[in-house]
Design a protein around this nucleic acid. Structure first.
Lengths: 265, 265
DNA sequence: CTAGGAAGTTTCAAATAGTGAAACTTGGTT
DNA sequence: AACCAAGTTTCACTATTTGAAACTTCCTAG
């Protein structure tokens, strides 16, 4: 996909390879990896061997293909529990999705991408892990723009630089300049829209989840279709969302401290 | 927890540190990690810095605490999709849990542990990622024993060696010998029970999911309480489970090949 | 059946990146 | 103001990593 060669250290390289295996999204053979790899054969081979030994990837001997290992699933379970907003936000987004009957997304920023960490869909109740963990672009999603709008300037600048500005629809913002002025509007308005910028017919309204100190913790959005809603009618949901966002932020902050006590039981 | 110092290479060390951060299950400070770490201060510090730079962990500047990073959530999404049985098994365990109205677990072996990759609970519909990713002991769970019973001898031996044999209840098997004879019974009977060996009042029946070549792909269990079931009444569910297990195995095997075609579109 | 070739694995001297004791910096406490 | 603890950096020393090339399999076509 993109050039990311300025990664130093063996650990960085190993994790790059891990990402590469993940990117294929299916069992992948050594030669396929080699083709798309920036590393020479022997290096790639040894990195794979190390990851294998560590249980981060698995190798099917009969087909000779590599897949991600189950150790990752375990680690990620912890990651999701301890470092994502999802566990804290769960009751509030449950309530919100019941109340308004539309799809609710909870997202966080990961580098320059939107990472969806939870989702509620009023129509199709169970569809969770399938969605949690997905990534999307920042510049043409409601949550992405909402989180970006309230990010500190240095990070905001970095992220604006790193977007691809691929045109998905007629409404997609396709330049840094367009995105920057959109962000200003979002800030003064207090919430972000996705006006069919990513997929035709899909619109959404989004709010950032901010800590008391103003730090961006994540984003919350309600998604619908142009058949059922207009931006204006979505905007009417903002007060409900504000409540949820406030409570999530509150809970998230009172979360970290209580357990510091039991240093050594 | 256990001694695992024979890990060579920087990547191994970095991943150890990652595990260590994960093990705390809460934001953890440098000094806490140092205390429980086998590495000297500077080394630990640099490893953390590397992981931080890689997005595998995150660092909260105000509290100075480390947590697992969101990059892991992304990776895990892929791991779960491509290398776990969960996506394949989903429809079958949905059906099974509806049909029998009890909690269904899907698990795989990770090193010497049981890794739960999916769960259906008839009473409480949505509770998924919360359970997927959890680990449990092999020697005193139904799925654990079922998978172990059909594992190839070298691996079986290795895993039997590595169990802790901690006594959770009066019925827990607390020796290699007891476990070995239990495994024989399981093999000849065709399914495994958990007779309150892990938690009092909790019983379960479990089957291994085997490929055509006899390889253990995973395990499936139905869990209940002594209030609602006996081992005998649980055993009556085995035919239903056999059907599900057979279909899961079938689907899992016809899964890997179709997509090999599009090498370079 | 065997020559040719592609895919995967190992070797080894050179080069690089990792190590950790100790010194230093920072921020908070008596 | 002096002290202390937590976190960060330095630097000479070492061990690991590197990658071209050689080697081993194992498959395929003649």
């Amino acid at each position: 996909m993109s050039e990311r060669s300025n990664e130093a250290g063996t650990v960085g390289k190993a994790l790059n390879v891990l990402d590469q295996v993940a990117a294929f999204d299916r069992p992948v053979k050594f030669s396929e990896l080699l083709e798309s790899s920036e590393y020479p054969k022997a290096t790639l081979y040894r990195l794979l061997k190390t990851l294998l030994q560590q249980g981060m990837i698995a190798h099917d001997d009969s087909s000779g293909a590599y897949t991600l290992g189950v150790r990752l699933v375990r680690l990620a379970h912890q990651a999701w529990r301890t470092s994502s907003l999802a566990p804290v936000a769960r009751p509030y987004i449950d309530a919100l999705s019941l109340e308004i009957g539309e799809t609710v997304h909870l997202a966080q920023l990961d580098h320059a991408q939107v990472l969806y960490v939870d989702k509620r869909n009023a129509a199709v109740p169970i569809e969770m892990y399938s969605q949690a963990g997905k990534v999307g672009p920042v510049y043409c999603t409601g949550v992405g723009k909402a989180m970006l709008a309230w990010s500190p300037v240095p990070e905001q600048t970095r992220i604006i630089e790193q977007q691809s500005y691929h045109r998905f629809t007629d409404n997609t913002l396709t330049s840094r300049k367009a995105l920057r002025s959109e962000l200003e509007i979002i800030c003064s308005r207090g919430h972000a829209f996705d006006n069919e910028e990513h997929e035709p017919g899909i619109i959404c309204v989004a709010l950032p989840i901010l800590s008391q100190s103003g730090q961006v913790l994540g984003g919350l959005s309600v998604t619908s279709t142009t058949a059922r809603h207009t931006l204006e009618s979505l905007a009417q949901l903002v007060p409900h969302m504000k409540t949820a966002v406030g409570r999530i932020a509150e809970d998230a902050e009172s979360w970290r401290f209580p357990e510091q006590i039991r240093e050594r039981a």
